[in-house]
Nucleic acid binder design. Structure first.
Lengths: 150, 150
DNA sequence: TATTGTTATACTCTATAACTATA
DNA sequence: TATAGTTATAGAGTATAACAATA
């Protein structure tokens, strides 16, 4: 029992690092660090202020200044004045930035799909079901509903 | 089918980041960065040279110098001359370093165990079986046998 | 007064290139 | 000559504290 439990923990940990390294590698192909990739990732469906970006990425606002500086210097994002608050700055993905993160994300998704390619349909379904259960109950413990009905 | 496949990929990716962040948080409790944690981790059952450390952590040897410098300054590792090669330096965990990495690893294992606590014995067994299958076949593709019989 | 963002500063982490000592 | 390790240097990434502009 204890041995079984340990090996589940171990398998999950190993697979997590494998998946993480896979993304890191695909991001590096686009000369993106993990944090730059996360920056572009959150900008795919948002146009946040520097402050909101700090909250989304869980970094200090002074760190966001440098992060956005470097991405902007590469032409991946743009700063725009907020129309409603003259103190605030809105950050937006450029076409180049969107292209880079889209390519990295697609290749990463392909890698994970390939990783699961050897599984039978039954095993894959079982994996999805169990992982979803873990994620939903973890989210619930954090007070988050992953599938809001409203 | 495509929707199912995507959601398996998504679930695996989400869970990977969750597990990774969990380790990062536990390491940070001991004031350890991820790379310092990996350094102490590989030293738990090895006493490698600087060069071997560079290979194990996939970093340049000049990066290892700084990494070990900082860990040594905190009293987490020690440098010792190699008895067989006067150019080489062996790196060894101190008791303090071992304590720190042991605590972080134990808490992390507890976190992952807790994450899986809501699963039935059946589900947990299914998860272990499927994840192991993925890991073994991935390792095989890399030419690695996870369970050498010799 | 409070908030938004930047700047100044300091530290970790990483790589490249040049170097020293030893093999 | 080749290898092991360090140093010098440069740049990304991060936080804290102080600041200017705006609310």
């Amino acid at each position: 029992m204890a041995a079984d439990e340990l090996s589940t923990v171990d398998a999950l940990a190993q697979l997590s690092f494998l998946v993480h390294n896979t993304l890191e590698r695909r991001a590096a192909e686009q000369e993106l660090s993990m944090i730059q990739t996360r920056l572009l990732g959150v900008l795919r469906d948002r146009e946040p202020t520097m402050n909101e970006l700090a909250a989304l990425l869980e970094l200090d606002k002074s760190s966001i200044t440098g992060l956005v500086d470097r991405a902007q210097r590469r032409g991946l994002v743009e700063r725009h004045p907020s129309p409603t608050d003259r103190r605030a700055v809105l950050v937006r993905l450029t076409a180049t930035g969107r292209e880079l993160v889209t390519v990295a994300a697609a290749r990463f998704a392909g890698d994970v799909t390939a990783l699961l390619a050897g599984l039978s349909a039954t095993d894959r379904a079982a994996l999805t079901r169990v992982l979803s259960r873990v994620l939903v109950s973890h989210a619930a413990e954090q007070g988050i509903d992953l599938f809001p009905t409203a």
